[in-house]
Simulated scan of single mutants.
Amino acid sequence: MSSAPSNSRLVASSGTQLTGKELLTRVLGRMDSELPWFRVVPIARRTALESIISSLIDAFVSYCSHPDPSAVPRVFSEAPAELVRSISLEQTLQLIRSSVAAVEDSLVGPEAAAYREASLDFSRQLAFEAAELYAMSRASSGLWDSRLEQLAIDAVLSGRGLAEMADRLRAVGWRGGGQTIVVVGAPGDEVDEDKLRRLVWNAGADALAGVRQGSVVLVLSMAGDALPRNGDLPEGGTDAADRLASLARDVVSEVLTRTAVFGDVVSELGDAAASARASMFGARVVHTWLQAPTMVRANELLPERALNGDADARATLVQRIVVPLEDGASDWLETVAIYLDNGRSIEGCARALDVHANTIRYRLARVSETLGFDITVPRNAFVVQCALRLTS
Rank of each mutant, 00 (worst) to 15 (best):
Ala4Gln: 11
Leu10Ser: 07
Val11Met: 03
Val11Trp: 00
Ser14Glu: 11
Gly15Leu: 07
Gly15Cys: 07
Thr16Ser: 03
Gly20Val: 05
Lys21Trp: 03
Leu24Phe: 06
Thr25Ala: 15
Thr25Ile: 09
Asp32Arg: 09
Pro36Ile: 10
Pro36Arg: 02
Trp37Ser: 10
Phe38Ile: 08
Arg39Glu: 14
Val40Ile: 15
Ala44Gly: 13
Ala44Ser: 15
Ser51Leu: 14
Ile53Met: 11
Ser54Leu: 11
Ile57Ala: 01
Phe60Trp: 13
Ser62Val: 07
Cys64Pro: 02
Cys64Gln: 08
Ala71Tyr: 00
Arg74Phe: 05
Ala79Leu: 12
Ala79Phe: 00
Leu89Lys: 12
Glu90Ser: 09
Arg97Asn: 09
Ala102Trp: 10
Glu104Asn: 14
Asp105Ala: 14
Gly109Glu: 06
Glu111Asp: 14
Glu111His: 06
Ala114Ile: 03
Ala118Val: 10
Leu120Asp: 12
Asp121Glu: 13
Phe122Ile: 10
Ser123Gln: 13
Ser123Pro: 05
Arg124Asn: 11
Leu126Cys: 07
Phe128Val: 13
Ser137Asp: 15
Leu148Arg: 08
Gln150Gly: 00
Ala152Val: 10
Asp154Thr: 11
Gly159Trp: 04
Arg160Ser: 12
Leu162Phe: 04
Arg175Gln: 14
Gly176Asn: 03
Gly178Phe: 00
Gln179Gly: 09
Thr180Ile: 06
Ile181Tyr: 03
Val184Thr: 02
Glu190Thr: 01
Glu190His: 04
Arg197Ala: 12
Val200Lys: 06
Val200Thr: 15
Ala203Pro: 05
Val216Trp: 03
Val217Ala: 03
Val217His: 04
Val219Phe: 04
Val219Trp: 04
Met222Pro: 00
Leu233Trp: 00
Gly236Lys: 00
Thr238Met: 07
Ala240Gly: 00
Asp242Gln: 12
Asp242Glu: 15
Ala245Leu: 14
Leu247Glu: 09
Val251Asn: 07
Glu254Gln: 15
Leu256Gly: 06
Thr257Tyr: 15
Ala260Gly: 07
Val261Met: 08
Val261Cys: 08
Phe262Cys: 05
Gly263Glu: 02
Ser267Cys: 02
Ser279Asp: 00
Met280Thr: 08
Met280Trp: 01
Phe281Asn: 11
Arg284Ala: 15
Val286Gln: 03
Thr288His: 04
Thr294Tyr: 09
Thr294Gln: 14
Met295Arg: 09
Leu307Thr: 11
Asn308Lys: 05
Gly309Leu: 09
Asp310Trp: 01
Ala313Gly: 00
Thr316His: 01
Glu326Pro: 00
Asp331Ser: 13
Trp332Thr: 11
Thr335Cys: 14
Leu340Pro: 04
Asn342Ala: 12
Arg344Gln: 11
Arg351His: 07
Ala357Arg: 12
Thr359Gln: 12
Arg361Tyr: 01
Leu364Ser: 02
Ser368Gly: 09
Thr370Glu: 13
Leu371Asn: 10
Gly372Phe: 03
Arg379Gly: 03
Asn380Trp: 04
Gln385Ala: 15
Cys386Ala: 14
Ala387Glu: 09
Leu388Val: 04
Leu390Lys: 04
